[in-house]
Structure formats: structure tokens, C-alpha cells
Simulated assay, not measured.
Amino acid sequence: MKIKKQGYNICFAVIVVILALMPVLLNAGVISSNSFILFLGKCIAFSIVAIGLDLIWGYTGILSLGHGLYFALGGYAMAMFLKLQATDGNITSFMQTGGMTKLPLMWKPFLSGYLSVILIIAIPAVLAATIGYFIFRNRIKGVYFSIISQALTWAAYSLFTGLQSYTGGNVGITEIKSIIGSIKGDANTGKMFILFYISLAILVLIYGISYFLTHSKFGKILIAIRDGENRTYFSGYCVSTYKNFIYVLSAIFAAVAGAIFVNFNGSITPTQMTISYSITMVIWVAVGGRGTLVGAVMGAFLINLCDYHFSSGVMVEAWQYILGTIFVVTILFFKGGLVGVIRDQLPILIRRVAHKER
């Protein structure tokens, strides 16, 4: 019984162990390319975003279609710090192209590593808290919240692409090294492993925080809000405060994920801030299984592994249609996602087969 209750945690532990073995397999020659480890590093970042989305959607019932905004804000903040490290605090090439002769004021805080870490968390937290305060206080929910989150993301995307001299425009901030130096090439395999394990540790930490919250009284209130917001409100709980807190926390998780992503990707562009990117994040959670945490992690890895193999060659044009079909089928017929199939449908199928054999 204890093992059954801890099934999600055991599944997550297995995922972590498998990920931890990947660098070992690379050294052993089982994996032939460093690029696959870099890809898994990005997937770790995506898993962190998915956990944050699961907290607000799976547990609280708030469907955000604009979390790419917070992911990109964290990514840009990290990229600005890393770019200034590469230029020794001088202006970048796109600033020179834009006619600037000195570092803009908005870039100066990112000269400091400690301040950059604070801003990676503070900027999305303040923005999410402000948005959430006005939205949840006025009890805006459902599709209306989803539309507003999309509109805000589109506005931010337009702003970042328009400020060419400050953000690099459509190209974004490119050609940057990780926080521990270059991780590309065989000579930097050791650094890549260090960054990979640091990112994995952050994933475990965020999963642990999320698991603690969802299995406490706080988590039960979130579920109560999801299943009956008005009833929870009339029970004496300040629903807007709980919703705003979890929304801000999920935004922070997304920003941290964006910062990790930049270290593995070597660049950040407004593409990561588009509405389609945000919707893809929701697909990860839906396919994996809402309200389970581990389902969000599984969905992020599964969809991106499929994308890694199918988004090139003969499948490049069909993959987006396949992804959309998977999402629709999951929502209509498998609301519990992959976890739900394993937890509910698979045992039923096994019992039916066993009964027929008798």
C-alpha cells in the first residue's frame, strides 16, 4: 500500500536516475553525441515549466496560455548577464548597430551575477503578482483568464521584437556561453556534465517543493478551488490570495526554467515568448497527466523527445499536425493523460485479459 501511495515519487525517482546515467553512458560510448545531453538539459528546463503549469492548471484549475512570457523573461535575464560577461561589460553588436555608444540603463544591473539571479526571480514574480492581483481580485477565470494571458504574451512579444537596440529584436541574444563557460565540444564535456547535474538538482528541488505544497493543507485548498471555487470562497478562504500565490510561484518556476534553457541553448529569442510556444507547454502537461506533477515531467520529456526525432526529415511538416491531434485526443478521451492511462485504463485492461484467460 505504501508503495502504491508513493508510485508518483518512485516514477519521478526512476526518471531522475535515468537522466543521471546519461552522462555516464556518453562516457561509455553508448551515446555517441554531446548534443543529446544538451537536448536533455533543455528538457529538464521544460519539465520545470511543466511542473509550474501543473500547479496552476492541474491543481488549481487556472489555464494559462501565456507562460512563455515568464520563461522568456528568465531566459533574457540570464542571457543579458552572460552576454555582458562575454563582452566584459561593453555594449553588444546589436546595440552598436542600433546606434548606441554606452550600455543602456536596463542592462546595467546584469553586470552583477548576484543581482542577475535576484532579477531572474524578482522580475517575473512582480509582473505575475501585479497581473494576478487585478485578475483574481475581480474573479476573472476560465476562458477569460486564458485570453488575457495570451494577449499579455503577444504584447510582450511585440515589445521585445520592436526594441531591436535593447533586446536584439527578432534575432534575440545569441552566441553566449553557459554560466560556467563554454559547454560545447569534446574539450568542454566536463563542464557540460556539471551544468547538467546542477540543472537536474534544481528539477529535484522544484519537484520536492511542489510535492510538499500539493500534499499539505495548502494543496487541498488548491484542489478545492479547482473543484468548487464558489464553495471555497463561501467557506471563508481568500481564494484570490491562494490563486495569486500559486500563479506567482509557477511564474518563478518558468523563469528559472528559462534561465537554465539559455545555458544549454546558447541563445534566447522572442520565439520562446510566442503564444504557440505557451500552448505547447500546456500540451506537455495535458499529455503527461494533470494534477500529478510527475505527469508534467513525463509529458515534457515525451513530447520533446518526439519533436527531437520527428521535427526533421519527412516528418517535419506533419509533426505539428500530429502534436495537435495528440492534444485533442488526450483532452477528449484520456483526461488523465499518460499517467491516467497507466493508473486507470491499464489495470482494467489487465483484469479483463486475466478474466478471459480463466
Results as ranks from 00 to 15, higher is better:
K2L: 03
I3P: 11
K4M: 15
N9I: 09
C11A: 15
V14R: 13
V17P: 08
M22V: 14
P23D: 08
L25V: 12
I31D: 06
G41Q: 03
I44H: 06
A45I: 02
I48V: 15
V49N: 02
S64F: 00
G68N: 03
M80C: 10
Q85A: 01
Q85H: 02
F94Q: 00
M100C: 05
M106F: 14
K108E: 01
V117R: 13
L127S: 07
L127Y: 06
T130F: 01
F134M: 09
R139F: 08
Y144R: 15
F145C: 14
I148T: 11
S158F: 13
T167V: 03
G169T: 11
N170C: 12
E175N: 10
S178N: 09
G181F: 12
G185V: 05
N188T: 09
I194K: 12
V204W: 15
L213V: 09
F218N: 04
F218M: 00
I221D: 01
A224Y: 01
I225M: 07
R226H: 10
N230F: 08
T232V: 06
Y237K: 01
K243E: 11
S250W: 05
A251E: 15
A255D: 01
F264C: 02
G266N: 06
S267V: 07
M273V: 08
I279C: 04
T292E: 05
V297H: 04
M298Q: 10
G299P: 09
S312D: 10
M315V: 10
A318T: 12
Q320A: 15
L323K: 11
I326Y: 03
V329T: 14
G340L: 03
R352K: 06
R352G: 02
E357C: 04
